[in-house]
Design a protein around this nucleic acid. Structure first.
Length: 700
RNA sequence: GGGCGGUUAACUCAGCGGGAGAGUGCUACCUUCACACGGUAGAAGUCGCUGGUUCAAUCCCAGCACCGCCUACCA
């Protein structure tokens, strides 16, 4: 047995690349479609194709890698399915910005050329993150890497769309949606972020049509009055009882609108009377449907007042607001203005104020799907970890609203619906039709919209395994064993995968879901470019080595609490890597004359017995904690054992025997030291794959 | 408005019915043949507040306070 001499300290930069290449070459990460081993599978939360590795990714993928390596070592046929998401709005925005530098818009190029340009961009810059994941040591089955816009996955999208449509679970209609005037598309309820803003509450007097007095309404959005079609009061409100059914004159517009009664109105807020703008407010829209009110759209897609706004036509919405306030004052309609702070909806992508607007969109009728998905979690077919998330999940599922799936973008899965020019037939098909099945007309027009990015990611657990084809991989690995993701996409993604998995595959997509927390800075602040507190994982890897970085993440991952990250903490665990390295040096320096034959006959002395019993406790703790996804506890168990038991006590205790003559004691110590240290390396491997591999190779 | 989580040593956090812990930091000593990215020893906390349950509570229950997050149609 020859053993190489170890360098003074571990050199992560050099070793990591060499070792990762070695793993790739030995096909260590590849799982077989068919195997005698028991399957274990995880699908990666696909990072955006535009993504750059940030702390959230680092945490998410480190945890997945720990589990998948752990399972692989336990003898499972362990698959970690990698891939990326096409990220509709995000990617389109990036390429549009690139075009803007050339003074172009996507409209200058036209749809086809623009999409070609996005693909070009993807080939060139997309997927940087994949290489960054490799730096993290991720042991994904890279041969299987998928992209949500792959041919196979696009086919899956169509299959599911058509199935939903045929089952009556997809419909098209004019509804009020969240419109982003900058992205120029509808977005789903989930994609709206509410921010509290200081604004005003304007009290406006609407004169009664009979000329006797006025009714006062309060609003935070005076410009929408151009689209008012009623004023509402509570049916029990004594102040207005005799006014219900009468009319008021809408100021500036000079239109007669009715006063109606609806229980939605809160009597003790403002004046107890509300202006109703069905075209610009979801609640008012609902009320309009209850009362058959006229619905007016007063703005275009850019948020500019249209011809329905009379003299305000052509004015941007906030410019119109200013002018309307001035005009109301002039006409003595403005009763008072009070400061008021309220929530304003923002586009989660570009932070532009959302404009609720009525437009024709596609929706998924979600209740039947949600019902199944709720049941699956109640019955624990899918378990959420930590369990406390179940309450949140049920709360959302029980109050879920139909999912708006159409987006007015160009980058994404185009909706598989065609309209016939000849007979106005609507064709919904898995493959592009060349003529109308009804009248034979060949002039078909495909729907202009694309699908919400989350539609394709909802299919991810089975589409990546080959569905709709009946593949062996699908048979072996579905349902997947575990999903590890951040709680922030519980609704966006996890819930929808459960719904789609049950609907399409008749089975849950994963048995366990581990929801981890957010990574914050050392003060607990969210990391963001604007606060300048971003810690770049790649810089940390460069500085402290991947192993130390990964171990830090694991050590700070407690269930139900955010991770606070700082370079000092990573440095602390870099010391741990160094400690392990030096222990290895000591171990190996004393094994030059080690021979297994005489070692086999050696009888354990007291320290040997002691450390072995401590080791078995540590192994038990690490295993149990990993099974329960207690990453911090597993890491702590290793740390304690290696440093405070193996190094502090055992290695010190056996030094006299090691440095003595070749006695029975020395042989026993050699054997124990050797065996225990090898086991330590195995325990460490999921957390610190590089240094443990390096030492393993040196030792064996 | 509803829900969830947090409040433990200077800092960051574990623990969660019977002993109050870790890392960093701090103090003193030690360059002894794995490691100063180290070793040994040590100081440091009425475990948010008020009640209750219990032989026993940091841990369970109730209420309160202050932070955070999620969710919601009070214009």
């Amino acid at each position: 047995m020859t053993r190489q001499e170890l360098s003074k300290a571990f050199e992560p930069a050099e070793a990591e690349k060499r070792i990762y290449d070695y793993w790739l070459k030995s096909n260590f990460f590849h799982a077989l479609d068919e195997s005698a081993k028991k399957p274990f599978s995880i699908v990666i939360p696909p990072p955006n194709v535009t993504g750059m590795l940030h702390m959230g990714h680092a945490l998410n993928n480190t945890l997945q890698d720990i589990i998948i390596r752990y399972k692989r070592m336990q003898g499972y046929n362990a698959l970690w399915m990698p891939g990326m998401d096409h990220a509709g709005i995000a990617t389109q925005n990036v390429v549009e910005q690139e075009l803007a530098k050339e003074g172009l818009t996507r409209h200058d190029l036209g749809r086809e050329k623009f999409i070609a340009r996005v693909w070009q961009w993807k080939e060139k810059y997309g997927g940087v993150i994949i290489n960054q994941l490799k730096r993290l040591g991720c042991s994904c089955d890279w041969q299987r890497e998928r992209f949500t816009m792959d041919e196979g996955l696009s086919q899956a999208v169509r299959e599911v769309f058509v199935k939903l449509y045929d089952d009556g679970l997809i419909y098209q209609g004019d509804y009020i949606v969240n419109w982003c005037p900058r992205c120029h598309t509808a977005i789903s309820d989930l994609e709206v972020e509410f921010l509290q803003e200081a604004s005003c509450l304007w009290h406006i007097g609407y004169p009664y049509a009979d000329g006797k007095g006025e009714i006062i309404v309060a609003t935070t959005r005076p410009e929408t009055m151009l689209g008012d079609t009623a004023v509402a009061v509570h049916p029990d409100d004594k102040r207005y009882k005799d006014k219900i059914g009468k009319f008021v004159i809408l100021p500036l517009v000079n239109k007669k609108i009715p006063i109606i009664a609806d229980e939605y109105v809160t009597m003790d807020f403002g004046s107890g009377a509300v202006k109703i703008t069905p075209g610009s407010d979801p609640n008012d829209f609902a009320m309009a449907q209850r009362h058959n009110l006229e619905i007016l759209n007063i703005m275009d897609g850019r948020g500019v007042i249209n011809e329905k706004g009379g003299t305000y036509k052509g004015q941007e919405r906030y410019e119109a607001r200013k002018n309307i306030i001035v005009d109301l004052e002039k006409g003595k309609y403005l009763i008072k203005t009070e400061p008021y702070s309220h929530n304003v909806g923002k586009c989660y992508r570009c932070k532009t104020d959302i404009e609720p607007m009525v437009s024709k969109q596609w929706f998924v009728k979600i209740q039947p799907l949600a019902k199944q998905a709720t049941k699956a979690v109640i019955e624990e077919k899918t378990k959420l970890v930590p369990k406390s998330w179940e309450a949140t999940y049920f709360e959302w599922m029980n109050n879920i609203r139909d999912w708006c799936i159409s987006r007015q973008l160009w980058w994404g899965h185009r909706i598989p619906v065609w309209y016939c020019d000849g007979c106005s037939e609507v064709i919904v098909a898995k493959t592009d039709p060349d003529k109308c099945p009804k009248c034979g007309d060949k002039s078909l027009k495909q729907d202009e919209d694309v699908l919400d990015t989350w539609f394709s990611s909802a299919l991810w657990p089975f589409s990546t395994l080959g569905w709709p084809k009946k593949t062996k991989a699908l048979q072996t690995f579905y349902p997947t064993s575990l999903l590890i993701t951040g709680f922030d996409i519980l609704f966006f993604w996890v819930a929808r995968m459960i719904m789609m998995g049950l609907y399409v595959m008749k089975d849950v997509p994963f048995k366990d879901v581990y929801l981890h927390a957010l990574v914050r800075d050392e003060k607990g602040e969210k990391m963001s470019k604007s606060s300048g507190n971003i810690i770049d994982p790649l810089v940390m890897i460069e500085k402290y080595g991947t192993d130390a970085f990964r171990f830090t993440l694991a050590a700070y991952t407690t269930q139900g609490r955010d991770v606070r990250m700082s370079p000092e903490r990573i440095e602390g665990y870099k010391f741990f890597v160094n400690k392990i390295w030096n222990a290895a040096k000591l171990v190996m320096a004393n094994l030059s004359d080690y021979d297994e034959e005489s070692a086999a006959k050696a009888k354990d002395a007291l320290p040997d017995k002691w450390i072995k019993s401590r080791l078995s406790l540590a192994i038990g703790a690490v295993n149990q904690n990993l099974e329960e996804y207690r990453f911090n506890e597993a890491a702590a168990a290793i740390y304690r054992f290696v440093w405070h038991e193996f190094c502090d006590w055992y290695l010190e205790l056996i030094k006299p025997a090691l440095y003595g003559k070749k006695t029975a004691l020395r042989v026993a110590a050699q054997k124990t030291m050797h065996d225990v240290f090898k086991t330590v390396l195995q325990l460490l491997h999921p957390f610190m794959p590089f240094v443990s591999e390096e030492l393993w190779q040196a030792l064996t």
